[in-house]
Amino acid sequence: MNLHGPSRSWQSLPAAQQPDYPDPQALREVVADLASYPPLVFAGEADQLRTRMAAVARGEAFLLQGGDCAEAFDAVSADQIRDKLKTLLQMGVVLTYAASVPVVKVGRIAGQYSKPRSSPTETRDGVTLPSYRGDSVNGQAFTEAARTPDPQRLKRMYHASASTLNLVRAFTTGGYADLRQVHAWNQDFVKSSPSGRRYEALAREIDNALNFMQACGADPEEFRTVEFFSSHEALLLDYESALTRVDSRTGRLYDVSAHMVWIGERTRQLDGAHVEFASKIRNPIGVKLGPTTTPDDALALLDRLDPDREPGRLTFVVRMGADKVRDKLPELVEKVTASGAVVAWVTDP
């Protein structure tokens, strides 16, 4: 990968929410190492998700995206990863059964280790230290050593993400995601929860339907595995660009840290580095839209990130609050739709 190529064009622009590393040379060395690491996902998988998101944008499928606001390095055990996946599988099967449409399952997982902050510093008892920006940058403990940004944590993020994705792939293709496991996903929950008992009743209905289909001679392979995609906020641009690769099939750039990445409300400046970076990659892209977003803002983001008006390319993640969304969202949807764009509209809980 050429670290000075198009994936680094963002470097000449203002980049919000980036750590202030005390040793720039150490950061450069880490970035060079990361650029030599294997991809975490493949370009063809990102293309597949873009196709699935196009169906979502057209109203032919439903997007279920879930996971942590911020992952932690000490939360990558097999049990913790399985439990996150189990919850999403449960939700996915309920939505599929109830709505009778495909459910595209995307985890905020295997890369969501960074946090934007409203202030670069935090003060306690007269002591001011850098804010905690997520395990990918520094530690939570309120000490100078812990709060000093450390570029070696970018490597830890890569390895934690790789371990997580490895296990997720094993679960989703190795039998755990088989629809005949629909009861097993709920065993602990069902013992004490009314919601769990309702889920178990639904699971029995699904079992009966599967048994009927099997008796009729239908036993599709699709029931044994599940498509599951990864996503996170592309906040730390040194990391994301180091994991950007040229696809050998097409010659296009893909961010191989995740299938889908998004730009946050604090980093979606049209003249900023994050929008520039996202404009160069072929992954499905999300942008968070807060209550100050105007129709002109949304249309300008479309022109930068989805100039060809390609369904599945762009997702708008709406985070406006229940008190504002009824006033703000309809006009945004109307103006974006009138522009010819077919985007997915997603709520950020």
Rank of each mutant, 00 (worst) to 15 (best):
D74F: 09
P349I: 02
S279N: 07
E200W: 12
A43V: 05
D296H: 10
L243H: 11
S231V: 03
I206G: 13
E122Y: 11
D47V: 09
R268A: 01
V275P: 08
V190T: 11
A78Q: 14
G312S: 02
A184Q: 10
S279I: 02
D271G: 14
T148I: 11
V325R: 01
A78L: 12
A72L: 06
V30T: 12
G67Y: 03
S77Q: 07
S248T: 11
D150Y: 11
A35P: 04
V94W: 13
N283P: 04
N186K: 07
A234P: 01
D271W: 02
Q140P: 15
K86G: 05
A61W: 06
V256S: 02
D68H: 12
A146D: 15
Y239F: 15
F73A: 10
P151V: 14
V333S: 00
P194F: 06
A70R: 00
G251K: 05
A54Y: 00
S248Q: 14
R50I: 01
M213Y: 14
N186R: 05
Y254E: 03
L40S: 02
R266C: 08
Q112H: 13
V101G: 04
R133K: 12
L210F: 11
R268S: 05
L64M: 08
A201D: 09
K105I: 14
H274T: 06
L235T: 08
Q25D: 11
A258K: 03
I281N: 02
G196A: 09
D323F: 10
A184I: 01
H259I: 01
E71P: 07
W10Y: 05
L89S: 10
D47A: 13
Q11H: 09
L302T: 00
R52S: 02
F189L: 13
S7V: 06
A298M: 08
G174V: 08
R50F: 03
F316I: 01
V104E: 06
D188S: 10
G217K: 13
H159W: 15
L63V: 09
A57H: 09
L40Y: 02
G92W: 03
A341E: 06
S9G: 07
Y239T: 04
D47C: 06
S195V: 10
E233I: 01
R8T: 09
F62V: 15
